[in-house]
């Protein structure tokens, strides 16, 4: 099956991606995503019945660390790249709704 992405669909994905796109970008994105997804369609030709998904390139299990403290960052370093801070906290505009 072929996915026909409308401009509205792309706008929804942009909202989900938290990307503000201007009209020109939306147009281009609609066209380009359509082309790429059209190409990706060829995966549906492959018989994957009974094949386990492979999420890791090297499949290891049981990688743990001991519950032991390691050095932390001083607050100054933690906040050093913050766009807005009062020296103690990260500051964000007053939150009224779930982002």
């Amino acid at each position: 099956m072929s996915v026909q992405l409308s401009r509205d669909d792309v706008a929804k994905v942009a909202l989900l991606s938290r990307l503000k796109l201007d009209d020109g970008e939306l147009d281009r994105m609609t066209e380009q995503l359509g082309a790429i997804l059209g190409y990706v369609e060829r995966l549906s030709e492959v018989d994957t019945e009974g094949i386990e998904p492979m999420a890791h390139a090297v499949e290891r299990t049981n990688v743990f660390r001991a519950d032991v403290e390691t050095p932390m960052l001083p607050r100054e370093a933690a906040l050093s790249n913050a766009p807005k801070t009062d020296g103690q906290y990260f500051l964000v505009p007053q939150i009224f709704d779930a982002g």
């Binding site: 403290e69 390691t70 050095p71 932390m72 607050r75 933690a78 906040l79 906290y89 990260f90």
Partner: peptide, 25 residues
């Protein structure tokens, strides 16, 4: 009640009086 956080050796302790003092990358 672990000593450290779930995914790093950063201290796991309730400490609202010293905000952002228990972090690491």
């Amino acid at each position: 009640l672990t000593r450290t956080k779930l995914f790093s050796g950063c201290v796991n302790r309730f400490n609202p009086d010293a905000p952002n003092s228990q972090t690491d990358p």
